[in-house]
């Protein structure tokens, strides 16, 4: 619990609150003074947010997007970790699959969304595929590093007590690599959310990205900003929660 409070405290410190307040003030005045169509005042955006939220318009897309995100992430974690572990353990797997993982890590995955649309159609499968494409490579890379970076002294110790290859994986490599797995999870979640919104904006009819497209097309700027605000908060909360989970797991096991 004290860890949770400290984590929350990081966001409630005076310098951050001051810069947040200044941003809000500049936004509000810029939106009021100039007659800029593309920048409504913050108060109007917040009003739109409250209006949308209480009318329930946001609830269905939020849930819908979350289910797609979790489905994609689950597949990424499962398959990405398995491939990463294989690459980390086996020279052959590394040579055979490593280049694809490296390419996938740096390639602009958004270019694949039209392909996914052709394959899966305008449906949830397309954005799930986008979530996977955005997140799976970073999960695999970190999983490979996790099992590869084990202290050789620990491996030698386990072997001397008769542990075989699989026992060493389960007892030594995986637990020793936990910080890397958690880093992969954190980066995977962040990239997965990017993929989710990217996919939804392109698909245009579902989830939070669909709302961005909908309000953007009709120049409903206050509602557009309200949805963008929601997406930024949504991503921050997810990444924060995973970071926190990682810290709790790691401090729990090595005081």
């Amino acid at each position: 619990m004290s860890g949770l409070l400290r984590q929350a405290g990081q966001w409630l410190n005076p310098p951050f609150l001051i810069s947040l307040a200044m941003l809000a003030i500049v936004w509000e005045f810029a939106g009021r003074s100039a007659d800029i169509l593309t920048l409504p005042p913050l108060s109007a955006v917040l009003a739109a947010f409250v209006r949308l939220w209480s009318s329930g318009v946001l609830t269905a897309p939020l849930l819908d997007s979350t289910i797609a995100l979790l489905t994609g992430l689950a597949i990424s974690l499962f398959v990405g970790s398995a491939v990463g572990i294989a690459i980390g353990l086996s020279r052959v797997a590394d040579v055979a699959l490593g280049p694809f993982i490296k390419a996938g890590l740096s390639a602009p995955m958004i270019a694949f969304v039209p392909v996914f649309m052709m394959i899966f159609g305008i449906g949830s499968e397309t954005r799930i595929a986008t979530v996977i494409a955005f997140s799976i490579f970073v999960v695999a890379t970190n999983a490979a590093t996790a099992v590869r970076s084990t202290d050789p002294a620990l491996l030698e110790m386990a072997r001397s007590f008769g542990a075989g290859r699989w026992r060493i994986l389960g007892e030594i490599r995986l637990p020793a690599g936990a910080p890397y797995f958690l880093a992969g999870l954190r980066l995977g979640v962040a990239r997965g959310i990017k993929g989710l919104i990217n996919g939804e904006v392109l698909i245009a009819i579902m989830g939070m990205g669909g709302l961005v497209k909908k309000y953007g097309t009709v120049f409903s700027m206050d509602q557009l900003y309200a949805v963008i605000l929601l997406i930024v908060l949504y991503a921050a909360i997810w990444v924060g929660a995973v970071t926190l989970l990682g810290r709790l797991v790691l401090t729990e096991r090595r005081k």
């Binding site: 202290d151 002294a153 620990l154 030698e156 110790m157 007590f161 008769g162 030594i172 637990p175 090595r254």
Partner: peptide, 18 residues
Amino acid sequence: GPGPERATVFQSFALLPW
């Protein structure tokens, strides 16, 4: 190979921190 009649104590201790 390693066997149950032998056990080793290591220079770096090789304890599992978790």
